[in-house]
Structures are given as C-alpha cells and as structure tokens.
Design a protein around this nucleic acid. Structure first.
Length: 467
DNA sequence: CTATGGCACGGATT
DNA sequence: AATCCGTGCCATAG
C-alpha cells in the first residue's frame, strides 16, 4: 500500500494533460476561482498563506511585514512546498533568445493583485487607522473595481465617523487605476474627469454628459443628447469620443493609456491583466520587467499531515482520501506547468516584439502561434491555449489581449489611422486604399472599410477635418 | 452615381 | 475540425 504513494504522486498522464490544458487557457481571475473552490472542497490541498497577515488576515503589500499589524511573515521550510506565487525575483534569467537583442532584459514573476496594487500607492499617506480602513475597503471590491460595501457599515465596524471613511475612499479613488473604489461607473468617470482636468483641458460637455446623460450615452443616442444639452451633434460626438478615448468606466478592467485605445467602444473593455510588462522603476532607460500575475498568495501544497494520516485510515475512507490526494498533487503540478509555459511563451514574445511593446503599434511584427510553438518545441494547441483569454498591460499602461501580439493587420491599421489623422480633407475608403497601395500595403477597398470601423473611425462623409 | 456596410465564401491559421 | 480574416458582391443611403 505504500506504493500507492508513488503512484499517486506520479499522475495519470491523460488526466494530467487534460487538466494542464484547461488550466492553461484560463485567465488569472478564473484560475483563482478554480483554485479556491478546489481548496475548499479538497482536504488534501493546503494553502500556506505566507503573504497574508495572520492577525488581521489582510494582504501583505510588501514581503516582510503587514502594514496594519506590522508583523513579519512566517517562515516555512518544507521540501514539499511548491511556489505558486514566487517571491519577487524568484525567477530571473538572462535573455539570450535573440541574436543581437539586448542581453540585459530579465524576467521575473511576481504577484500583484488589485488591492495590493492600490494599497502600495496610498499607504505612505495614511496613518494606522487609515490603513485598516483602506485595507477593509479594498478587500471589498468587485471584479470591476467597485465597492461592494456601504460606507456606513465600514464606519460602524471601526466605530468612526462616516466622513473619515469617505476621506479614505476618496484617496483610493485617486490612486491608480483612477476611479477604483467608486460605487458605479458614473462616479468613476467623474473622478477621472477631475483628475484629468488638472492636467489637460476637458470640455465642459464631457462632465455634463457623465452627470446627466449616462443612459443616453450608453445607448448611443447622440442626437437626443445634443437636444438635451442644446448643442450640436458634432459637439456631442466629440465629447463621447473624448470619453471613450480617455476615460474608463470600469477601473479594474483596464487602464486608459496616454495613447489612444484600439477599441474605443464601451462594450469592449478588458479585465485585470494576466501579465504586466513595465520598465524597472518605471524608468524607460531601465530594463523591461515582465510580471506574470499569479492567482494566489502564499504557497499551495499537498497537506503533509493529510498525507501521513492516510496511512492509518480505515480502508473505506482510504479510497476517497487517496482520490483527494491525487487531485491535489495533480492540481499543483498542473499549476507549475502552466507557470512554466507562460514564462517561456512570454520570454519569446517579448524578445520578438520588443519594438512593439516599447514604441507602439506601428512596430508590431507579424508572427504566428505556429512559429512560437516551433521555437519552444511544444504543440501548437499549447500556445493557442496559453494565448487565449489573456491580457497584457504594456509599459504605457494600455491593456491589450495577448492575442494582439499575433495580429496581422495591426501594422496596416496604424498607418491607416495616421493617414486619416493627417488628412486635409476627408478621404474616402477607395482613396485610402490606393494611398496604402503606394505605401506598399495591398489591401482591398472593402478591407479599408473594415479596418476603419475596427479603429472606430467614422466614414468619410461624417468626419470633420481635424486640426 | 458614389460611398459604405452586410453577408457569405475560401483560404489561412489555430 | 473550428475559427479568423480578407475580399467580392450586392443592397442601401446620401
């Protein structure tokens, strides 16, 4: 019976493969749910919660100590421990993939979730009580970054006046992603408008529309809006355009970059990214860092106590527990595999699309998943699954789907966008098509129309000449 | 008559 | 095998 141990640890390959594949195609958010449900239903699985404060059970923003209780994290040295969420710089490696690419790039997987991300920014300006409140608020955010508790409850809980809580909430809202911690999209937008108008000029109409015209705007009833605010249709369109370009009604789903978004429509917003690519210390002179967001804090492992207990179990229970044990170790192994694949994939992508990441859409290179799969010596479907449903945050804070790295038409689309932006008079699709042909892009007239709508650019006769 | 968007087909990609 | 993408044809709007 002792042999079952070995058999259990070494998983049945078909099941292993099947689960690896499904886990691979899951974005972090869903993966987290998956793990949590398994964690609560499977006694063999254990989460050693190194990064959560044992007293207040809140997130630890920095490795080391809890901002609320100032407790050091617990040490754990168990050889069965598997890092689901490696500490910072856990995985650092030289990049020698390209021939003359900078060999300085390094990759590290770190763990950041939204509450932590926000808390890191605001913790310096808060006292201890403020931190407690902030942590409480942040742990009650929904997936869009909106608050799910009322301020009164929080105030009661901490026995403090509501105004204090409001104060904290406001601080949170003004941290990145701007508007996080609001109660609804409208509130988030307003915060963003205020912040933006400190730096740039924002048309008054924008604020008006957000305050009173949300319903009409979301239904794209622009003429009604124009009527309500007694202004021209063009003005309204401009304002709505401004909103979709610069603001984001769902703070947690995406940042709005300084650069314009490829999908200006409200219907297409992306969730919390699976991967963050940024400069070291946000300094463009420094190296690129690729963070692969992992779903959990602490370490996930097979509970060693459970493993021992199974030997003394009654034969009836034994079967059931053996099954649990098997599932647990399978899950852990699959997670490791997922992380590994994601890392290798990202390493490859980043080296190949370096210019695209740093300098923008114009420099994307057309690559296919098939190419990558050859390079990494894995099956095509593996890459497909790894790419599917994932989003990446670029150094300029834009969030794009990972599949954009394989977009064949993005390059032409940016050229097209430039043409229209710099046009003197509105150009028709046919004219644009022939201009593109001169530049070396052979595309049909019909295709130009498609690209145009993909970029959210109005047809020629509705465009006004830009200044 | 011109410009554009919808539908659908075929080839490439996944 | 399923899906995505570019394109041609056609209907419709201006």
């Amino acid at each position: 019976m002792l042999q079952t141990h070995l058999q259990v640890i070494r998983p049945i390959t078909t099941a292993h493969l099947a689960q690896t594949m499904t886990l691979l195609s899951l974005p972090v958010e869903e993966l987290q749910q998956q793990i949590e449900s398994e964690l609560s239903s499977n006694p063999a699985l254990e989460l050693v919660d190194e990064r959560r404060c044992p007293i207040c059970h809140r997130l630890l923003p920095e490795a080391g100590k809890c901002p609320v209780c100032s407790l050091p994290k617990t040490e754990s040295s168990d050889e069965t421990v598997i890092f689901v969420s490696p500490p910072e710089d856990f995985y650092v490696r030289k990049d020698t993939g390209g021939s003359e690419e900078t060999p300085d790039d390094f990759f590290s997987t770190t763990v950041i979730d939204l509450p932590t991300y926000v808390l890191r920014q605001i913790s310096p300006e808060l006292d201890e009580t403020g931190l407690r409140i902030a942590v409480h608020l942040l742990s009650n955010l929904d997936e869009d970054g909106f608050l799910t508790t009322s301020l009164f409850e929080v105030a009661n809980y901490f026995h403090i006046p509501v105004s204090k809580v409001e104060n904290i909430k406001s601080i949170i809202q003004h941290a990145e992603p701007f508007g996080v911690g609001s109660n609804n999209p409208q509130e988030a937008l307003l915060v963003q408008v205020d912040l933006l108008s400190e730096v740039n000029k924002v048309p008054d109409l924008v604020k008006l529309i957000i305050q009173e015209g949300m319903n009409l705007m979301s239904r794209h009833q622009y003429s009604e809006l124009a009527h309500q605010f007694k202004t021209s249709l063009a003005q309204v369109k401009q304002a709505v355009h401004f909103i979709s370009e610069n603001l984001n009604p769902f703070p947690a789903r995406a940042h709005w970059g300084d650069v314009r978004q490829p999908t200006p429509s409200f219907t297409q917003v992306y969730h919390q990214p699976d991967i963050i690519i940024r400069y070291l210390n946000d300094d463009p002179a420094k190296n690129l860092i690729v963070e692969i967001i992992l779903p959990l804090y602490g370490t996930l492992r097979v509970n060693p106590v459970f493993k021992k207990a199974i030997q003394q179990a009654e034969s009836e229970k034994k079967e059931e527990w053996k099954n649990d044990l098997e599932r647990a170790s399978l899950l852990v192994k699959c997670l490791q595999q997922r992380n590994n694949t994601m890392q290798r994939l990202l390493q490859r992508i980043v080296t190949m699309q370096r210019d695209f990441i740093i300098q923008g859409d114009r420099f994307i290179k057309p690559i296919t998943r098939a190419q990558i799969s050859k390079d990494l010596d894995v099956h095509e479907s593996t890459i497909s699954r790894a790419v599917a449903n994932k989003t990446v945050q670029l150094p300029n804070k834009r969030i794009i789907p990972l599949s954009d790295f394989f977009d064949r038409s993005l390059h032409i689309r940016t050229v097209l966008r430039d043409m229209i932006e710099t046009e003197n008079a509105p150009l028709s699709d046919a004219q644009l098509a022939s201009m593109l042909a001169k530049e070396g892009f052979q595309v049909a007239r019909r295709t130009v129309a498609k690209y145009r709508s993909m970029e959210g650019i109005l047809p020629a006769h509705l465009r006004t000449v830009q200044t």
